[in-house]
Simulated scan of single mutants.
Amino acid sequence: MCGRFALTQPLDVLTDLFQATPDNDLPELPAYNICPTVPVATVRSDAGHRRLSAMRWGFLPHWYKTPGDGPLLFNARAETLARKPAFRDACRSRRCLIPASGFYEWTKDAEGNRLPWYIHAPDHRAMAFAGVWQDWERDGQRLRSCAIVTTAAEGAMRQIHHRVPVVLAKADWALWLGERGHGAAVLMRAAPEDALRFHRVAPEVNSNRASGAQLVAPL
């Protein structure tokens, strides 16, 4: 799973990297401790024109009467994405990229203490998580929301957690966004083992209120 992540690259770097037009509602960057229910930067494609815009991290199915009406769907399992009622339509026609510099996972020591890890690309470049999105509207309230697609971890990552976000290679972004036709299902797999690095970080990040570059520093 992925319950926290970081995005530290500045806006101009992201717009150039994703070749996307930025909207005015983007969250402030850098952000070292992004949690579910907050706005996150996403990339979606409209007939090949990419937009970098904010969406609520926490997918809202159309039948939710309020944003808190059901489970908080911040992750979507790749194995069931096309079948689950909440996600199946979005899987076909509303896919997005969710930029990230890295994400956090936790293990436990012998005493049950939560030990945080930071997982990132080898060169600390921005990554793109596979995502799905949905517009939700009820009683005049409208929200655009998203979820990160996850899959089974491979290799050394399994030491930390059995699930990881689907990290898409740059060459696959267009296919996931629907700009190159059909066939995006083949992309829902774990990244190659050499595509991710991880290190322990201080327990300060255990609090969702913590912030600052020190959260990603090696312990």
Results as ranks from 00 to 15, higher is better:
Thr42Ala: 03
His124Trp: 14
Glu111Gln: 15
Ala121Leu: 05
Ile160Lys: 08
Glu193Lys: 13
Glu154Ser: 15
Leu115Asn: 15
Pro27His: 06
Asn75Ala: 03
Thr80Pro: 10
Pro71Tyr: 02
Arg94Phe: 12
His182Val: 12
Leu175Thr: 04
Ala110Thr: 13
Glu111Phe: 11
Pro122Asp: 10
Trp133Ser: 06
Arg83Met: 00
Arg158Asn: 09
Cys35Leu: 10
Ala100Cys: 05
Gly140Ser: 06
Pro22Leu: 04
Arg94Ala: 10
Leu143Asn: 10
Ser45Pro: 09
Asn24Asp: 15
Trp136Gln: 07
Gly48Ile: 08
Ala130Glu: 07
Gly68Thr: 08
Gly58Ala: 05
Val38Arg: 15
Ala90Lys: 15
Trp57Met: 10
Phe87Trp: 15
Val216Cys: 08
Gly58Pro: 11
Ser53Leu: 05
Ala152Phe: 12
Ala153Asp: 02
Ala156Val: 06
Pro203Ser: 01
Gln9Phe: 10
Pro22Lys: 11
Glu79Pro: 10
Gly131Arg: 03
Asp194Ala: 02
Pro61Gly: 05
Asp16Leu: 11
Asn24Phe: 13
Arg144Asn: 10
Lys108Gly: 04
Ala185Phe: 12
Ala169Leu: 09
Arg142Val: 07
Asp12Arg: 11
Val205Trp: 08
Phe59Arg: 09
Ala41Thr: 14
Pro10Lys: 07
Gly112Glu: 03
Ala100His: 05
Tyr64Lys: 12
Met1Pro: 13
Ala128Leu: 09
Pro116Asp: 02
Val40Trp: 05
Ile160Phe: 05
Arg180Ser: 14
Ala213Ser: 11
Leu143Tyr: 08
Trp136Gly: 06
Trp133His: 12
Ala191Trp: 04
Ile148Pro: 04
Ala121Lys: 06
Asp12Ser: 03
Val164Pro: 01
Asp135Gly: 15
Ala156Phe: 12
Ser207Tyr: 06
Cys35Tyr: 03
Ser53Ala: 03
Ile148Leu: 00
Ala41Pro: 14
Tyr104Ile: 05
Tyr118Met: 01
Arg197Gly: 02
Thr21Gly: 10
Ile34Met: 09
Val38His: 14
Pro22Arg: 07
Ala47Ser: 14
Tyr118Asp: 01
Val149Gly: 08
Thr37Asp: 01
Gly48Val: 04
Glu105Lys: 15
Asp139Tyr: 14
Leu168Asn: 01
Val132Gly: 09
Asn113Lys: 15
Ala156Trp: 13
Met188Trp: 09
Ala86Asn: 10
Ala82Pro: 14
Asp25Leu: 00
Gln19Tyr: 12
Trp63Asn: 03
Pro10His: 02
Ala147Val: 08
Pro71Ile: 04
Leu14Ser: 10
Pro218Ala: 07
Phe198Cys: 05
Ala128His: 00
Arg77Ile: 02
Arg95Leu: 07
Pro203His: 09
Ile34Asp: 01
Lys108Asn: 03
Leu11Trp: 11
Ile119Pro: 01
Asp194Ile: 01
Ala54Pro: 12
Glu105Leu: 02
Val40Met: 04
Ala126Ser: 11
Lys65Cys: 03
His162Ser: 14
Gly155His: 07
Arg163Gly: 08
